[in-house]
Design a protein around this nucleic acid. Structure first.
Lengths: 330, 330
DNA sequence: TTGTCTTTTGACAACGTTGTCACGCTGCCT
DNA sequence: AGGCAGCGTGACAACGTTGTCAAAAGACAA
């Protein structure tokens, strides 16, 4: 900036004004400055700028996801990015891998870089450690899962209701022995979905059979193994409800392997690419990751714009997409 | 930091030393400083730090991808992140959407934030504009596609060889009328893959029939429409080669729709989740995004560690995975 | 011309750090 | 006793910006 100022024969303050598009610089000087900065390949240094400016904004936000390469998470990431670019804000993204310590490390790394806001898909259950960040003005929004011991905006899917819808659908087809396949019980959404299963069975006066419930199935392989076992044991379920997309895939793989994929009903939580092209097509309770991400990002920027109203808790509804696998009768 | 220093009754320089883990601070003082910074919830400000320190490092890199939510790109992202975390480096990620202007904007935004390095999956074909970044010491590595008019490290898949392998496989099954479905011809890898198709046909002395070639199919829908047309026209191909994963999916969708998915052979470039569960399973030429990302990130950090040797060009080999769709005979 | 008001411009300090250097202290050697 | 090295520590300037405020320049009326 100093060099640009020297070349344009103005003070560095004037260069600053031109760079920031402030008013009150005569067109003649502005032109000289622009020319000089082009000639010198000048790059505005945003870190120094945010250090000095009064609001201290870095035009950067941090996003903590379970895994940036997970389809649901990367869809969230993308929709957050879409809102951020419109404001010239960049996104730092990191994967927590469901590890509380990693979540905290990431957030601490973001905080060191003075991000303006955080969007967190939480792995941990106690977020009181975020109070310090909040105090220095960092906006915080939780997505997909609720915050623990911390009052903040959240954007969630109505997990229990979605599951109940799916279970109701299976019962309507005549099923009574409906197995439930759940993710790690430590994941809040997984617990919620399991709760939906239990509730809907109770509501429909169907006795819960714990032998048909398998929890803590994290990833395709674990789900596949559990389903293989479930479908060869007795009593054999006539329908499966898979509580997450990788579990659905693992379940389908096991069913295919046993040749039961056209005889056992399957409903999965979360839509996934190609669900319609399998045989049968997979009936799913679809979330809307794009809507979740967009809502969360818009919430975050509203807070950054000064909205101090009480925390909001948005719920994004699910949609059942019937494709065949959920319509198989017992 | 000043407050911490005051509370610990030391100079801020000593706090700096403790925070940076420098040697030569007496344990007694170090303890006092640690206690004080905990009590005050002190957060080291990395932006100020990188502004001042002599190497100017921000411990942040920028990654430009086609689309962070694209499965191939997000796999790259994840493997880059895995290398970066080990060094305490954070990743800024952005989507170019195959738009040259957007690519430049992203890189300019990264540059303003003084990232230490850039990993770019390029959308544009002239990267001479990066010379200025290179000059200020930013390390640059290209992934998936080559750089244009710019000498830099690259990590690519051997696209043409992969396609030739697939075409050879189809020919070995007895196919002669093999259609080719390609992505936007402006994408370097798409052009390479198309070249592989042309070359292999020539090598096998099979006359190229332009009516069987469809290019610029970007996204599932376009591919689906093109294949629907191709399979109802004459001469009808007996086999399809799809040059990208979304194209493969679109092609399969069209084939299913026409009831031809068990009669027409299909080989796709890029593996994708569930390819094994479709009926038939889809034979693919699989890339290894994790290896590509890891190699690129390691390359980048080697440069940041001072490696000044000439640019390296790594090629990651593809692997053919036969699952049934490519083994259908004419 | 002068005085007043408005617009444009620049000098300077400050943001939160770290590099440099010099200081004081201790312990050891002459 | 004097000198010197080594260690721990702190004062100060600087990194590249922007906020503040005052000075300079221009516009306009009397």
């Amino acid at each position: 900036m100093r060099e640009v100022a020297a070349l344009a024969k103005v003070s560095i303050k004037t260069v600053s004004r031109v760079v920031n598009g402030e008013t009150g610089v005569s067109p003649r000087l502005a032109r000289r400055v622009t020319a000089a900065s082009e000639r010198l390949d000048y790059r505005h240094n945003l870190t120094a700028s945010s250090l000095r400016r009064s609001d201290g904004r870095s035009a950067t936000i941090g996003v903590v996801l379970e895994d940036v390469s997970n389809p649901f998470a990367s869809a969230l990431h993308r929709s957050i990015e879409d809102v951020a670019v419109r404001r010239g804000v960049l996104v730092l993204a990191g994967s927590s891998d469901e590890d509380e310590a990693r979540e905290r490390e990431l957030i601490s790394a973001f905080a060191s870089r003075r991000v303006d806001g955080l969007i967190i898909q939480p792995a941990s259950h106690d977020h009181s450690y975020l109070l310090a960040e909040r105090k220095v003005g960092t906006a915080i929004v939780f997505v997909d899962r609720p915050a623990g011991f911390f009052d903040a905006d959240t954007v969630l899917t109505d997990n229990a209701a979605g599951v109940r819808r799916g279970i109701r659908h299976l019962i309507a087809q005549g099923h009574r022995r409906i197995a439930y396949l759940g993710d790690l019980h430590t994941i809040a959404t997984a617990a919620e979905r399991h709760r939906g299963y239990v509730q809907e069975l109770a509501a429909q006066k169907i006795q819960l059979d714990e032998r048909l419930v398998r929890l803590d199935l994290h990833g395709i392989e674990k789900a596949e193994a559990a389903v293989a076992e479930l479908l060869t044991a007795s009593p054999r379920p006539t329908a499966l409800f898979a509580g997450q997309n990788l579990i659905t895939i693992g379940a389908f793989r096991a069913m295919r392997h046993l040749g039961l994929h056209k005889r056992t009903a399957l409903v999965g939580f979360d839509d996934f690419l190609l669900a319609d092209l399998l045989e049968p097509g997979i009936t799913v309770i679809a979330q809307d990751p794009a809507a979740i991400g967009r809502t969360a990002a818009e919430m975050l920027f509203r807070r950054l714009d000064g909205d101090r109203s009480p925390s909001e808790h948005h719920t994004v509804v699910t949609q059942m997409i019937t494709r065949g696998s959920g319509e198989i009768r017992p």
